[in-house]
Simulated assay, not measured.
Amino acid sequence: MNIAFSPCPNDTFTFHAWVHGLISGGEKLDVTYADINITNNWATEVKGPEVMKISYAALPWVLEDYALIPCGGALGRGCGPLVLTAGNMKDPASLAGKKVAVPSEKSTAYLLFRLWAADNVPGGVGEIEVMPFDHIMPAVRDGKIDAGLVIHEARFTYHQFNLTMMSDLGEWWEKDTGLPIPLGAIIAHRSLDLKSIEKWTRESVEYAWDNPEASREYVLEHAQEMSPEVVQAHIDLYVNEFTRDLGDEGYTAIEALLGRAAKEGIVPEFDLKALRK
């Protein structure tokens, strides 16, 4: 079975056991490590792997062919994307007409940014530039762009670039809705045995929690030069009970985010019931 997920610690920690044949009955995996911007495009524009980690924001484009697996993904509190600037530019209104870098235009981060900007940036921002997420902070620091939308471990490291947090979009979302923020989803092609994929994914998550040292070497190997401390903070933040099972609260958060985005014309209109099928 072909699977694609990022080399980020939450994904390698989550899938370590299944990848390494430690799950009873788990089908052998052929893994491709790819940034979520790449998997979003694979899911929405070309024929991608059978199982993928994508942004929740990309789901409206793929639900006809792919089903949402209710475990293995990233959804939680205190883990949202950040809007960063250089210097002391903290007033959102100052972004009007400015150039902003984002990691993907089909990412949850970008979707949240659009919703936040509609409420906080009079007249809207100017040019949007898609950029690999690890290039964004240096570009903001060097003055190549006015602000950057960052994800993942950047929330732990942006101080190293002397940047200022203008907004924590997860905090904004939680205050606005009272719900956790949906970030990354696991999807599987509808032709597959979805119940088995759900079972193997959940068992892989539980194995990782029960045997935290087992995945350490594998996680660090793919951790893109993060320190062990940052790696552990990343796992602690993004691998949580929603990774084990979305539950009603998780589904409600996803429906709220994508339903609101559809009303704003940011994503296509779609049947929200398809998220649970």
Rank of each mutant, 00 (worst) to 15 (best):
A214T: 12
E174G: 06
S55W: 00
E269G: 12
A109C: 03
V19C: 10
G97P: 04
R260F: 03
L257C: 04
D210A: 15
G148K: 05
H20C: 11
L275V: 06
A96H: 11
D65M: 05
G143W: 05
A93F: 05
P92R: 03
Y66I: 06
N37D: 08
F113Q: 00
L63Q: 06
C79W: 01
F133Q: 12
T201V: 15
L149H: 01
S196W: 07
F133V: 13
I145V: 14
E213S: 15
K90L: 13
D30V: 14
I266G: 09
F13K: 02
D146Q: 10
G48C: 04
T108C: 08
E264I: 08
A214H: 12
V31D: 04
E64A: 13
E127G: 05
V100P: 00
G123M: 04
A43L: 11
L169A: 06
G48W: 01
V46F: 07
G87R: 00
A93I: 01
I3S: 00
E221Y: 15
W116C: 03
C71M: 07
I38R: 09
F161G: 00
C8H: 14
F156C: 11
P228W: 11
N41P: 00
F242R: 01
G178Y: 02
A93W: 02
L149R: 02
Q224G: 10
F133E: 09
P9Y: 06
I38A: 12
A96D: 00
P60M: 03
A147V: 02
P103Y: 09
I54M: 06
K99M: 07
I136W: 01
I23G: 01
F15Y: 15
N162Q: 14
A185C: 10
L22A: 02
P138A: 11
N10T: 10
T39F: 06
L237F: 08
A262H: 04
M89R: 13
L179G: 09
E198I: 13
M89I: 14
H222L: 15
F113R: 01
